[in-house]
Amino acid sequence: MSQPPINLREDTWPGCKPGKYFQRGRFLKIDEIKVDLEAKRKSKNVRDQTLSLIMLRNINAMAEDPLMQFMRRSPAKLTVSRLQHVTGLDGFQGITNDGGFKGKAKNISATDSEIWQCFSWWSIVVSQETITSIRENWRHRIPAATLNQFPNSPVFDSESRYGNFTFSFPVEDLLRAYSEQHCSGETPVFRVLGTWTYQQEIAHTILVHSAEYNHVFSDFPDISADPTEAIYRVEDGTFMCNLESTCSKIDGTSCVWNNPIFAFYLPGFSQESQLKLDFSRTTLTACSATQDNYMQTRGARMPVSEANKYIQSYFEEERNANY
Rank of each mutant, 00 (worst) to 15 (best):
P5A: 13
I6P: 02
N7W: 01
R9A: 12
R9W: 04
W13K: 09
W13S: 10
W13N: 02
W13Q: 08
C16T: 00
C16H: 02
G19F: 10
G19T: 05
K20M: 10
L28E: 04
K34Y: 14
K34H: 13
K34P: 01
V35H: 09
A39K: 14
A39H: 13
K40N: 05
R41S: 15
S43V: 12
V46Q: 07
T50G: 03
L51E: 14
S52T: 01
L53K: 14
L56R: 02
L56P: 04
R57E: 15
N60P: 01
A63S: 11
E64W: 04
D65R: 08
Q69A: 02
K77H: 14
L78K: 06
V86Y: 03
V86D: 00
G88V: 06
D90V: 12
G91H: 07
F92T: 00
N97W: 01
G99H: 11
G103Y: 06
I108F: 12
S109N: 14
I115D: 12
W116G: 00
Q117K: 15
F119D: 07
F119Q: 05
S120C: 14
W121T: 10
W122E: 05
S123E: 15
I124G: 05
V126N: 07
V126Q: 06
V126H: 06
Q128I: 12
I131R: 09
R135W: 05
H140M: 07
H140V: 07
I142M: 04
A145E: 15
T146P: 01
Q149R: 13
Q149P: 00
N152D: 09
V155P: 01
D157Q: 09
S158G: 02
E159P: 00
G163E: 05
G163L: 07
N164C: 09
N164A: 06
F165D: 01
F169Y: 15
E172M: 08
L175V: 09
R176K: 14
A177E: 13
Y178I: 07
E186T: 12
T187F: 02
L193F: 07
L193C: 10
L193G: 03
I202H: 04
H204V: 03
T205L: 09
I206C: 08
L207R: 01
N214C: 10
V216S: 07
V216G: 00
P221E: 09
D222T: 10
S224G: 04
P227Y: 12
E229W: 06
E229S: 10
I231G: 00
Y232A: 04
R233M: 14
V234I: 12
C247G: 05
S248N: 11
D251I: 06
D251E: 14
C255R: 09
V256F: 11
W257T: 08
S270E: 14
S270G: 09
L275V: 05
L277D: 13
D278I: 12
F279E: 08
R281Q: 15
C287D: 02
S288M: 07
S288A: 15
A289I: 08
N293Y: 11
N293A: 13
Y294F: 11
M295R: 11
A300Y: 03
A300E: 05
P303W: 08
A307N: 06
A307I: 04
N308S: 11
Y310M: 00
I311S: 03
F315W: 10
F315R: 08
E317W: 01
A321V: 03
A321E: 12
